[in-house]
C-alpha cells in the first residue's frame, strides 16, 4: 500500500513537472517571437517613411532609401512567377488528374520534386550560377536570379496546387465526363476554378519563399544597388540588402528598417495564405 502511494505521488510529481515544462516551452517560444518582432519594430519602424521607400540607395545603404532594391525584388519575383506558374500548374494537373494514366512519369516527378524541395538554398545558388549565369550566358542578372528562384519555388507551388485539385469532388469529373466534355474544357471551366483556392494558397506560399530567399540570389542576381534598367541587369533583392547592410559599419538602422519592410510583406502573404487554406480549402493544403 505504501509502495503504491509513493508511486502515485511520484506520478503526480512527474505530471506536474511535464506540465511546467510544456507551459515553459510554449511560453519561451512565444516570448522569443515577441522579442524578435518587437526588437525589429522598435528599431525599424522609426526608419521607415515615404522617402525611405521611394529614394535610391546612398553610401552603400547607410543613407537614402530602398526604392531600387524594391524594384529589383519585384522584378526577380515577377520572373520567378512567370516561369513557375505555367510549369507548376501543368505539372500539378498531371499529378492530380492524370497520374493513373501516366503512373511511371508521375512517380518520377513526385520523387524528384521531393528531392528538389529539400535542396539547400545555397546549392540552388551554386547551380543557378553555373547554369543560368555561365552556361546560358545570362551573367549576374535579375533574369538569372528569378529563374533560380523559380526552381526553388516549383515544388512548393506544385504540391499545394495538386492538393487543391485533389480536393475538388470527383463528382464533378464524372458529371463532366457523362456530358461528353473534353479534359481540356473540364479543366478550364470546372476543375481550375474549383481548385482556385489551392492555387492561390500555393502561389502565396511560393511568393513567400521567394521573397525570403537570400543565399540563392548572392551569386545569381548579384549585389548591384542601382536601379535596374533591364532584366539582364544585376539587381539586389531586399533580403540580400539586409545581409549586406550588416556587413557595413553604420548600416544597422537601415537594416532594421528594411527588415521591417520584408517581414511586413511576408506577414501579409502568410496571413493571406493561411486564411485561404483554412477558410476555403478547409485545411486540406498541407503547410510544411
Amino acid at each position: 500500500m505504501s509502495r503504491s502511494t509513493s508511486r502515485g505521488a511520484r506520478a503526480k510529481v512527474a505530471d506536474g513537472l511535464v506540465q511546467a515544462l510544456v507551459w515553459g516551452t510554449a511560453g519561451t517560444v512565444s516570448a522569443v517571437f515577441l522579442c524578435l518582432v518587437g526588437d525589429l519594430l522598435w528599431h525599424g519602424l522609426a526608419g521607415i517613411d515615404l522617402d525611405f521607400l521611394t529614394q535610391g540607395v546612398e553610401r552603400t545603404g547607410r543613407a537614402g532609401g530602398i526604392f531600387p532594391i524594391l524594384v529589383s525584388t519585384f522584378l526577380i519575383l515577377a520572373v520567378c512567377l512567370a516561369v513557375s506558374i505555367p510549369i507548376g500548374l501543368l505539372t500539378a494537373i498531371l499529378l492530380s488528374e492524370f497520374s493513373r494514366r501516366n503512373p511511371t512519369l508521375s512517380r518520377l516527378v513526385g520523387a524528384s520534386l521531393d528531392v528538389l524541395a529539400g535542396v539547400p538554398s545555397i546549392v540552388f545558388g551554386l547551380f543557378g550560377n553555373a547554369f543560368f549565369c555561365i552556361a546560358l550566358g545570362m551573367g549576374f542578372s535579375i533574369l538569372s536570379g528569378g529563374l533560380t528562384l523559380s526552381c526553388m519555388v516549383l515544388p512548393i507551388f506544385i504540391r499545394s496546387v495538386e492538393l487543391g485539385l485533389r480536393a475538388v469532388p470527383s463528382d464533378y469529373r464524372l458529371a463532366g465526363a457523362a456530358l461528353g466534355m473534353s479534359h481540356t474544357s473540364m479543366l478550364l471551366k470546372i476543375l481550375l476554378p474549383a481548385g482556385a483556392p489551392g492555387i492561390a494558397a500555393g502561389l502565396m506560399l511560393g511568393v513567400g519563399r521567394a521573397l525570403a530567399e537570400t543565399a540563392a540570389l548572392m551569386f545569381t542576381s548579384g549585389y548591384a544597388d542601382r536601379m535596374p534598367s533591364s532584366l539582364m541587369d544585376s539587381g539586389r533583392a531586399l533580403s540580400l540588402h539586409i545581409y549586406d547592410l550588416t556587413q557595413v559599419t553604420g548600416g544597422r538602422p537601415n537594416a532594421y528598417a528594411s527588415g521591417v519592410v520584408l517581414v511586413a510583406l511576408l506577414l501579409v502573404i502568410n496571413l493571406l495564405a493561411s486564411w485561404t487554406v483554412e477558410h476555403i480549402v478547409g485545411g486540406r493544403v498541407q503547410r510544411v
Binding site: D171, L174, A175, A178, L179, G180, M181, K189, P193
Partner: peptide
C-alpha cells in the same frame, strides 16, 4: 465525347457544377 452526348446520364446524388 459524341457517344456521351448521345447517351446522357443522371447520377444517384445530384452532381451539379459549383
Amino acid at each position: 465525347g459524341l457517344l456521351r452526348a448521345n447517351i446522357g446520364m443522371v447520377f444517384q446524388k445530384p452532381n451539379l457544377f459549383p
